[in-house]
Each structure stands twice: as structure tokens, then as C-alpha cells.
Amino acid sequence: MSEHLYKYLRPEAFPTPFCAGCGHGILMNAILRAVDELQLDFNKIVFVSGIGCGAWIPSPHFAADTLHTLHGRPIAYATGVKLFNPDLKVIVISGDGDLAAIGGNHLIHAARRNIELTVICANNSIYGMTGGQVSPTTPKYAKTMTTAKGNPEEPFDLCKLTVACGARYVSRYTVYHIKPLINSIKKAMTTKGFAFVDVVSPCPTQFGRRNKQPTLYEMFNDLKARAIRYETAKGLKKDELTGKIIIGEFNE
């Protein structure tokens, strides 16, 4: 990462605890670039995270106030921080299992209340830390530790969900689409209201290995093949969108 971003890190926490080729490190870089380009005061940001690999992005790597909370609850904690001290910028970074499964209730209600929080979902479609179980965003038919014959369930579209709940800014990018991702995180951080960024972040260790994409590069190729712009997707039928990852801004 660029040297001028080192001031945002706790160097003693590196190397990161993530597996080789984990997309979360790329997201970490993107978030710090967004903070730097916006010239935000790092002392006035509180990073709130839950449990799981995604939750370890801010804690302990960021040299800011970090609140590493219970599984599924970061948005509830963030609500308390933001409401009591609105001068603080409160950014929630957590995984798909944390925000959408166990914490789904807090997600939809914070979006409904339109509280000024930036929620970044490090979405790797799997429970990575616990060993690769199916998550609410695992694609249909994907193999995981708990769906050896393929996932029988449809995944959540977290962007459509949060738009429906009233979020002010909603977008999805993959870590491969790094420049638009950084811009989108910047927009989310400056949104006056609830902002949600769904970041598709590959997990080669727990997801790729079991789905014939054992390296980050192979997973990137898959993301490239499946990604489709929001504007393009609007003109397509439902079955044409099967397996696609819609990227872009969902409510602008």
C-alpha cells in the first residue's frame, strides 16, 4: 500500500491475520484510501465491527477508535455511539454472515431509521473464520462445509434489501473493481443518512477451494465474468441475471 497511508495503521498488527489471497486486505486498503482522499479526521472516526474475518479489518489494524463487538450486533452498537455523539463518524465494517444473518434485524432497522452510519459489508459469501459454512449470500448450488451437495437456498441480495428498507445510499462493487469501489466508499462516508456498500470479497481458502477457484486470481476471473453493471442489468430478464453480480449504485 502507498506509504502515505501508513499513518492510519497499527504496524504491530501486521502481517494481517487473513489467509493468503483474501480479498479483505484489498478492502482494507480501499477504505483507508477513501478516508485519506476525503481528508477525514481519523481521531473522530469510530470503526465498529462484529465477529468474523470481515470484522478484523478495522480491529486491530486501524489506528483509530475501534469497537469489536458481539456477533451480529455492530450496527446496534454503532447506533448508540452515533446517537450519543453525532460529531463522530461511525463506520461499520463486518461480514455477510454477521450483518445479514445473525444481525439482519439490526441492519434493516438501522436502514429504516436512516441513521447516519456507513455500513461496509465485506461479503465473501461464506463463514470463513468458523471453517467455511454456508452463509445467507452463498450463491445457489455452491459447495460449502454444510452444503456438500450444493447450496439449495437462494442468496440474499443485500442491496435490494437495504434499498427497500429506506437506506439513503446503496452500492455494490467487488474488490476487483477497485477504483469505483474507493469512489463508492467515499460517497457512502459522506452520505447524510444510512449508507450501505456491499463489497464482494473473494475467499479462496474456504469458498474458492471447494468451488474450483483455489486462488485469488481465479476468483477474480470469475468475478469479472459474473459482474454486470446496474444500468445494464435493468434491461435484463430475471433468468438472464441468474448467477450475475450486479455492481453499481442502487438508488441513484
Partner: peptide
């Protein structure tokens, strides 16, 4: 002061803890 009716009791206690770290008696 700040009052909020949360979505459940788990959210209540968690947001209270968050507010306490932001300096509130909660």
C-alpha cells in the same frame, strides 16, 4: 439526552454499551 426504542432487547443493550463508550451514562 437521547432516547431510542430499539428493534429488540439485544439491540437495546448493545446500543447502550456503544453510547457508554461514547461517554454517556446509559
Amino acid at each position: 439526552g437521547v432516547f431510542i426504542q430499539m428493534e429488540d432487547e439485544i439491540g437495546s443493550i448493545c446500543s447502550m454499551i456503544g453510547a457508554s463508550w461514547a461517554g454517556a451514562k446509559a
